[in-house]
Write a protein that binds this DNA or RNA. Structure first.
Lengths: 338, 338
DNA sequence: TGGCTTTATGGTAGCGCTTCCATCGGCGAT
DNA sequence: ATCGCCGATGGAAGCGCTACCATAAAGCCA
C-alpha cells in the first residue's frame, strides 16, 4: 500500500462531474478565473472545496512543460553560510511560486554530478550551484539542458551561465592588508581542508600572495590545516604557538576557526590582540559578540541567495539579463581582535 | 524562451529510433535491464550516451504514481537545529533515491498550511513536519492525502501519523533539576518569543512547574523574553541583573541565548558560576568550547532526521511500522557553567 | 433584422512515459 | 514432426492535466 494517494485521489473530472461542467472549465477556474461566468465559477469552487480537490501538479507540469521547481545543490545544509544563502533564495522563489529541490553534494564533485543528473530528470526550471568548481560532465549536462544556471558564492573565470558571488581572494586580501597596516609582520594562517572548495583555495592563495607582495614571509611552519570546527581552531592555535611562537597575528579561513582560536587564547590567557592578533572570515553572528570582538570580513550570504533568485526569475520571465555576473562584494569588519 | 528545455529535449523515442528499437525497450533497459538481450541493451545504452538522454521523471511520475519526492516543512533553513535534522533526513533519503522538497514556514501556521497545500499538489510520497502545532486544515489535508507523515522534534499528544522527537518538557526539567541539586534557589529564565513553537512552550511550562514542585519561586521579574540571538541573551542578562539582582542562576531556552548571557558575563566581569550559574538547551557545538563551558542538554538533532527518514522509508516499503512514535530522548551535559 | 464580434463553454489531442497484452521465433519435451 | 512454452520485443492505451480549436449563445451596430 505504501506510497501516496493513488486510487482515492480526487481528480479534475470528479470536480467537473460534481459541478456539472467539463474538465476544461475546472482548469480555467484554476488558471484564468476571469474567463468563467461567476455562477459557473462559484459552482466549481464549491465542488473543489467539497471534494477537497488538489490539482495534480505532476500532470500539469507534464503538459505545461513547466514544473515550478528550482534545483539547488549545496555542500551541506547544516552549514550556516549555505543555509543562509538558500534561505534568501527560497524566500524570493517561494514568493514567485517556485519550490526548491535541495540536494547535498558533501563537497564531492562526483556526488554533485550524480545529483545533478537526477535533479535534471525532474525538469527543474533553473539550477543553483555552489561555487565554481564543477566536473566537465556537470558542465556538459547543464549546457545541454539549456536550463538557467546560477553559480553562487564565487566569481568564476568561466561561468556556466549566471553568477551571484564575491571574491574570496579580494576579501581575504583585504583582511590581510588590514593586519599589515596595523603593523603585524609575522602572520600565521589557520585553515580547514580545501578539497574541492574553490573559495578556500582562493583564500589560501590570497594569504601567500598578499604577504609576499608586502615583502613578508610565509614559511610553512606558520600555517596549520585543521578540521573545520571550533575545536579545530583551538588545536591549531596550540600547535602554531608551539611550532611558531614568533607569530604576532593569525588569519583564519573562517570565523568558526577564528572563534576556536579566540576561545583557546582565553583559556590559555593569551592577550588578544596584545600578544596575538586574530582575524577571521565570514562575519558570523558570534564574531561581533565574542570577547574580544573578532575582526573579520562580512560576505553577503543572504543577499547572494536573493540575487541568485532574482537572476533566475528575470530569466524565467523571458527578460534578457544584461549583467549575468553579479559581484556582491564584501565588507571588512574591524573590531577589537586585530 | 524562458523555462526549461522544451523543444530541444531528447526524448525516449529519439533514443529508441537511434537504437532501432521500440520505446518500450528503452524503458526496459532503464528499469529491468535483465529482461533485455545483451546485444540490444548495449545498443540502447550507446544511444542513451550518444544523445545524452535523461529520462523525464515528470512523465514517469505521472504514470507510475510515484514521484520519489518527500516534502519537508521547517520554520527556517538558517537555523542550525533544523538544518541538522534535515541533513540527517536528506542523507538517508538520498541514499534511497528520494529527493527533498523543502519549504520554510517562517514560524507561521498559516504559511505552513499554504505551503503544504502547494506541496501536496506535487504528489510527494511523504511529508516531514516540524513540531506538533498545526492548523486544523493542515491536519485535514494530510489525513485526506493518505500520505505518510512524520512530525519531528516534539512528542505530540495526538500525532498525525508518525513521530521522531524528544520531550522538551522533560529535557528542560532535567536541566532545572540539575540546577536545583547544585543548590541554586533563585533561578531566572531567559527565553525567546514562543509564538507557535510548541517546544518553547513546553520549556516554559517546565520552568514554572519544575521550580514550583521543588518549592521554589518563579516571580515574573525573574523571567525575561528576548529576541533570539546572542545579542538578545546579552541584553536579557543586563535587564535581569537590574530587575532581579538576587538571582543565583539563569536557565536559557536555547544555547544561543545562553552563550549571549555567558559573553555578557565575561564583558561585565560576572563570575560564572560563582556569582551566577548559567544553563542552556540544545548543546550547540559552541557550548563545549565557550569559557566557561556551558551546562546544557543535548538533543538528538541529526538522529531525529535519520529516524524520520527511516520511518518514512519503512512505510514506503510497505512495512507496517509497529512503533510509529519514537522518543529519541536527550542527554544532560554538565559542564563548568552550572 | 442580418451579419458581425464577443463571451462562455466543451471536445479532442497529446505531453513522455510505463503498463498490459500480443506477437514471434526458437527450443526442449513428447 | 508437433506441441507448448519461454525469452525477447513491440503496439497501444492511458496517467491527469492543459492547449488549441470549435461551437453555441448573447450582444452590438447600421
Amino acid at each position: 500500500m505504501g506510497g501516496n494517494a493513488g486510487q482515492g485521489q480526487v481528480r479534475m473530472v470528479d470536480v467537473a462531474r460534481r459541478a456539472g461542467v467539463a474538465t476544461v472549465t475546472v482548469s480555467r477556474v484554476l488558471h484564468e478565473a476571469e474567463k468563467v461566468a461567476p455562477a459557473t465559477r462559484s459552482r466549481v469552487e464549491a465542488a473543489i472545496a467539497e471534494l477537497g480537490y488538489l490539482p495534480n501538479l505532476v500532470a500539469r507540469s507534464l503538459v505545461a512543460a513547466r514544473t515550478g521547481m528550482v534545483a539547488a545543490l549545496i555542500p551541506t545544509i547544516d552549514n550556516s553560510l549555505h543555509a543562509e544563502m538558500i534561505q534568501g533564495m527560497d524566500e524570493r522563489c517561494a514568493a514567485a511560486g517556485l519550490h526548491l529541490l535541495i540536494g547535498c553534494t558533501a563537497f564531492s564533485l562526483e556526488v554533485e554530478e550524480r545529483m545533478l543528473r537526477a535533479f535534471l530528470s525532474r525538469q527543474p526550471e533553473a539550477v543553483y550551484l555552489t561555487g565554481s568548481n564543477h566536473s566537465p560532465a556537470t558542465r556538459t549536462m547543464l549546457k545541454a539542458s539549456r536550463v538557467p544556471v546560477v553559480e553562487v558564492a564565487s566569481l568564476p573565470e568561466t561561468p556556466i551561465d549566471m553568477v551571484a558571488g564575491y571574491s574570496s581572494y579580494c576579501a581575504a586580501a583585504a583582511v590581510l592588508r588590514h593586519l599589515i597596516e596595523r603593523g603585524y609582520r609575522r602572520i600565521g594562517y589557520v585553515y580547514s581542508p580545501i578539497g574541492v572548495n574553490d573559495r578556500l583555495a582562493e583564500r589560501h592563495r590570497a594569504y601567500l600572495e598578499t604577504l609576499a607582495s608586502a615583502g613578508l614571509e610565509t614559511p610553512e611552519a606558520w600555517r596549520f590545516e585543521s578540521e573545520l570546527g571550533m575545536a579545530g581552531g583551538g588545536l591549531a592555535l596550540a600547535r602554531l604557538r608551539a611550532q611558531a611562537p614568533e607569530l604576532d597575528a593569525v588569519f583564519c579561513s573562517t570565523d568558526v576557526l577564528a572563534v576556536g582560536v579566540l576561545l583557546e587564547c582565553l583559556r590559555q590567557g593569551i592577550a588578544v590582540p596584545g600578544e596575538l592578533a586574530v582575524a577571521g572570515f565570514d562575519d558570523l553572528p558570534i564574531a561581533a559578540e565574542i570577547v574580544p570582538a573578532l575582526t573579520t570580513v562580512r560576505i553577503p550570504r543572504r543577499r547572494m541567495g536573493e540575487v541568485a533568485a532574482g537572476l533566475i526569475l528575470r530569466r524565467l520571465a523571458g527578460e534578457a539579463v544584461a549583467e549575468p555576473v553579479v559581484d556582491l562584494g564584501f565588507e571588512l569588519q574591524v573590531r577589537a581582535s586585530a
